[in-house]
Design a protein around this nucleic acid. Structure first.
Length: 589
DNA sequence: GCCGTTTTCGGCCCGACTGTTTTCAGTCG
């Protein structure tokens, strides 16, 4: 952050959103240390919003100046000015001042379970602790227990928190890889005699791509029994807290799970409350206040404290004058206003897909034969699929050359004849053609034109300049044989940043050339991501949702692609592979 | 520091659990 100037010239290092979000997050913690009441919330809200934004803050600033920044929710003049300073200088004087006053590794220390701003501050002021190593040492030397507000048991708790932090490197969990675990726990909860109703709430219910913890909710007259069951499940590694209405455990897989228990008449209110998001709920509570009500996890209450709604979520929204808002939309991204004016989208449903246009077989890097994958697709309820194995230059995946592709085409036609006769599913011929560094494709046009479906994708040179990368994708999209741009931004969640591209340009060319943009449903890709899906739809671009299946078991990935599309406000009509086969084929280039 | 069906000033969601207290502060979601 200090690489400010070089021979007096300003070097722009282009801070990424997550770095800017981190600065704002740390300012929030510093403000809380100072005892500020409301500033921390303002900074935290801004940090969360910017951290979740797909488009670079720098790009927004370049396009619309400080005014565009101030139009973002939760960003006023003051924070906007700080953003401009960060964008222009890669530094922020205000932040650096705070850092000088209390020079500690704030992000790390405060991410240790049980450590908040006040404790970090006290530990620095009394014991000079600035990082996790010094904290651990002080505890081992029994110096922490002497401080007011700490004791032997807090020392042990912090030590456990440090241990966990070191193991988990503070990561979030990819929903598609862990949702099964939760559904399994939920089934067991539901089977208990003492449980009337149980649901998974939280960000998992909102189908966020990654989650920090899981929130279970149950209604019961015998909460103690349910809590005993929950805290003694075989997968529990550690019990954080155990109370009558709330318990938190950590599973052996490392993820924290909460269980809340409420009376049956509060189940809907609690479900609404614990589903979040936090910002969505704050807005709902404000609406409740305006109407003279009070909303909490036990229900909606009038002035005389009588419950007027709470058994179902629908009753809460309805009494607030709103239609039901589906969990995937509850992110404070305009859904409440849309609900108020009857403009909520009619989201694509989880059963609406008829086709899947990206599937791999053991001809390249898939695990099963064409016929095995076809049968699995049929079982998943699909009416048509395209086999799209990799092309020749993707050597890591044993890409197919022209000769092999010809052979595969024959095999597909053979299988297709038998399955069609059974009246089941149609297999389209296809390929995932590799986009080379200069934007050309690794198969000739006379080869490509033989396929029913051509998906083009980037698999190398991920860090070209924005201009080069955009030009590269655009050039592939102008190819008359390319129907779909597969996993357009190439991101891998928590592993690889999205390509640096001019997404507006991609959208323009997608529309101009009728090139479909894919939502790849692989749980660690989900590419396009929700926000880009929303922008694609606003620009009237077409999208498809594909499984990118490499295994018979991968068709259930489609659920996560659909949820991502729902989070991007996609309707059935926006997604081309909800069409029956004939209409789908007609809609291609 | 943000924001507007109460508003450009004066509000800002709210309850549960823990540990260290002897009535509550800090943390979490």
């Amino acid at each position: 952050m200090n690489r400010r100037s070089y021979r007096g010239k300003c070097i722009k290092l282009n801070l990424k959103n997550f770095e800017i979000a981190r600065v704002l997050h740390e300012i929030a913690i510093y403000e809380e240390m100072k005892g500020e009441m409301f500033k921390p919330r303002a900074y935290e809200k801004a940090a969360l919003y910017i951290g979740s934004l797909a488009e670079d803050v720098g790009t927004i600033y370049k396009k619309g100046g400080i005014k565009a920044l101030m139009q973002l929710p939760g960003i006023g003049r003051n924070i906007a000015e700080k953003l401009v300073e960060l964008i222009q200088t890669d530094g922020l004087a205000y932040y650096e001042q705070l850092k000088r006053e209390i020079p500690v590794d704030l992000t790390t220390l405060s991410s240790i379970e049980g450590m908040g701003p006040k404790k970090v501050k006290l530990l620095y002021e009394k014991l000079g602790i600035t990082n996790i190593e010094e904290l651990e040492k002080a505890i081992r030397e029994k110096r922490v227990r002497a401080l007011r507000g700490f004791g032997e048991s807090s020392e042990q708790k912090i030590l456990k928190g440090i241990e966990f932090f070191k193991k988990s490197h503070g990561g979030r969990f990819i929903l598609g890889f862990i949702l099964n675990t939760f559904e399994d726990i939920l089934q067991r909860l539901k089977k208990l005699d003492s449980v009337k109703n149980a649901k998974l709430a939280g960000s998992a219910r909102r189908m966020k791509e990654s989650i920090g913890d899981a929130d279970f909710l149950a209604s019961s007259d015998k909460p103690q029994k349910v809590m005993d069951f929950f805290t003694s499940m075989p997968e529990v590694a550690y019990i954080h807290t155990k109370g009558r209405t709330k318990s938190t455990v950590r599973l052996k897989s490392g993820i924290n799970c909460d269980l809340r228990i409420v009376p049956e008449e509060s189940f809907g209110a609690a479900l609404q409350y614990f589903t979040g998001s936090k910002q969505h709920n704050v807005l709902l509570r404000t609406i409740a206040l305006h109407k003279g009500y009070k909303l909490n996890e036990y229900g909606l209450y009038d002035k005389r404290n009588r419950q007027i709604a709470g058994k179902t979520e629908e009753s809460i929204y309805s009494k607030l004058g709103l239609p039901f808002i589906t969990p995937e939309l509850r992110e404070d991204k305009g859904e409440i206003e849309a609900a108020r004016y009857g403009r909520l989208p009619k989201l694509i449903g989880y059963d609406d897909l008829k086709g899947d246009l990206q599937i791999h077989t053991n001809w390249t890097d898939g695990n099963y034969t064409i016929i095995e994958m076809t049968e699995a697709a049929s079982k998943a309820g699909l009416e048509y699929i395209a086999i799209t194995d990799h092309s020749r230059t993707l050597e890591i995946a044993h890409g197919l050359n022209e000769r092999k592709l010809k052979q595969q085409e024959k095999e597909i036609k053979r299988v297709n004849n038998t399955t069609k006769q059974n009246g089941r599913i149609t297999i389209l011929t296809g390929v995932e053609v590799n986009i080379l560094k200069d934007g050309s494709l690794d198969l000739e046009n006379n080869v490509l034109m033989e396929f029913d479906i051509v998906g083009a994708a980037v698999h190398s040179h991920f860090s070209l300049s924005k201009e080069e990368q955009t030009k590269r994708l655009v050039s592939a999209m102008y190819n008359p044989n390319v129907d779909i741009l597969f996993h357009p931004t190439c991101r891998v969640i928590q592993k690889r940043h999205p390509l640096d591209i001019d997404f507006d340009k991609i959208l323009d060319v997608s529309k101009e050339t009728n090139t479909i943009l894919e939502v790849d449903s692989s749980p660690e890709r989900l590419d396009l991501q929700d926000e880009y899906i929303q922008r694609a739809i606003e620009n009237k671009c077409k999208i498809v949702i594909d499984s990118d299946a490499h295994d018979k078991s991968h068709f259930h990935f489609l659920k996560f692609g659909i949820s991502q599309a729902r989070r991007g406000w996609a309707e059935k009509k926006d997604v081309v592979n909800t069409l029956p086969l004939e209409k789908f084929l007609k809609s291609l280039k």
